[in-house]
Computed example of a mutant assay.
Amino acid sequence: MTTRVWDYLSEYAKEKADILDAVGKVFDSGQLVLGESVKGFEEEFAAYHGAAHCTSVDNGTNALKLALEALGVGPGDEVVTVSNTAAPTVLAITGTGAVPVFVDVREEDFLIDTDLVEAAITPRTKVLLPVHLYGQSVDMAPLKEIAARHGLRILEDCAQAHGARHHGELVGTMGDAAAFSFYPTKVLGAYGDGGAVVTSDDEIDRTMRQLRYYGMDKVYYVVRTPGHNSRLDEVQAEILRRKLTRLDAYVAGRNAVARRYEEQLADLTGPGGLQLPATNEGNTHSYYVYVVRHPERDRIIEALKAYDISLNISYPWPCHTMTGFAHLGYETGSLPVTERLAGEIFSLPMYPSLSESEQDRVISALREVLAA
């Protein structure tokens, strides 16, 4: 039996009745687009974050892109972010016509190095876009101070950090707006695609709602500004409503898996050995993925295939090294920490329904491979 880095089937078996009831409710409602399920989910997701507004969209990439547009980002503007992220973060920026400006990450937690941010700001900088990577919050206090000094807006990329907290505050509540993805693998995942933007700024929310619906207001066929067709499906919205009530339990389950990895693998750590993820002081990690580090990463992953264990790398190619972003002009060596991590990091299986026996298989196999 293959142990995968992520699997939804055991969770679905437990939640099947509720998921299918959600589907049935929508199909019986008579309204399949922007109906009561979308409205209800938006209200409940905003309330979960203590925010005034939530605008749902069709995927996490468009959540970022439309949020940037709602913040006034356009051609020629610059957005400061990281290269150690999923490509959609950068594609959302380039999709507005703006230029991503990359800052290196910190060795200890793989998150944006806030000490380097101010040097990356130019007169064209419009937004700071911190990525709460792998389920852990960026240190937001220095970013907020920098943004205030330079008159910049902050858009949080929360695609990987649903339910994570920073000194008690939920991610998604510490900037001007926050973008979420509900891709199935996420901590709060749909049974398809989806995304949302949370904000307490009335104007950002008004613009978001206009942008996701062709650029129209309530009057159909009257385009006020060039927009998009970017709506969350009613079925996914109703499923997400049900799953939102279990979000804190999902985070707790992921933390339980993480604690067991830490307990069982602690003796393998040390200089030149396995490095386990660190949770920064004041943070509640939601462990979207459990990212470890080893200088012989590629050998380890290849060897584990013989044990029928499939692992993942998040991410083997930093965005600034991809041919699709070559026009940005970043040379090899320009982001040394990011590039070094890309050759050493890999993810162990992580999801709340991962059984102890499955986890034991991974731990045992990893021990054997590291001892070889």
Rank of each mutant, 00 (worst) to 15 (best):
G172D: 03
S37G: 04
R242E: 06
A178V: 08
G151M: 13
S355T: 15
T61M: 09
V23Y: 12
G97R: 12
A252Y: 10
R340S: 15
K126Y: 14
D201M: 11
H167L: 02
V99D: 04
R206S: 09
H320S: 02
Y134S: 05
E281G: 05
A98Y: 07
L32M: 15
G168M: 04
G72T: 12
L304I: 07
Y287D: 01
G333P: 01
T122W: 15
T225V: 15
K218M: 09
R231G: 00
C319H: 00
L32Q: 13
G40A: 12
Y8F: 08
P318A: 07
H166Q: 07
R153P: 02
W317E: 09
P75Y: 10
T125L: 13
R224F: 00
M174F: 03
Y330D: 02
H166W: 12
D176F: 14
P318T: 05
D157M: 04
Y134F: 15
P277V: 08
S310F: 13
T332G: 04
S355A: 12
G35W: 10
D28N: 11
A159V: 06
V23N: 03
R165L: 06
D109F: 07
L265M: 12
R367D: 03
E36F: 04
T3N: 02
L188T: 03
S200H: 09
S200R: 09
P142M: 14
A46S: 06
Y307C: 04
R224A: 13
A190Q: 03
T81V: 06
E169N: 10
G329K: 04
L276Y: 08
L247N: 08
L211D: 03
A237T: 05
A52W: 00
L133Q: 08
Y351L: 04
G324M: 06
E356A: 14
V362Q: 04
G151R: 14
R231Y: 10
R254T: 02
P352H: 10
Y290S: 03
I313W: 02
E263R: 15
E169V: 00
S353H: 11
I363T: 12
Y351F: 14
S29G: 07
A178F: 03
T89C: 09
L68C: 06
A51N: 00
G35P: 06
I19H: 06
G282M: 05
G35H: 10
Q31I: 13
A119W: 11
V257I: 15
S230M: 07
E281C: 03
V235Y: 12
T61N: 04
D77T: 07
S29T: 08
D217S: 15
V131G: 01
L211T: 07
T207L: 15
D157W: 01
Q31E: 13
A303D: 12
M140I: 09
L274Q: 09
A326P: 02
N62K: 05
F180Q: 03
V23F: 12
I112K: 01
L354D: 01
E234I: 11
P100G: 06
F325G: 00
V23S: 02
L128Y: 09
M140T: 02
G40T: 11
A256Y: 06
T85K: 01
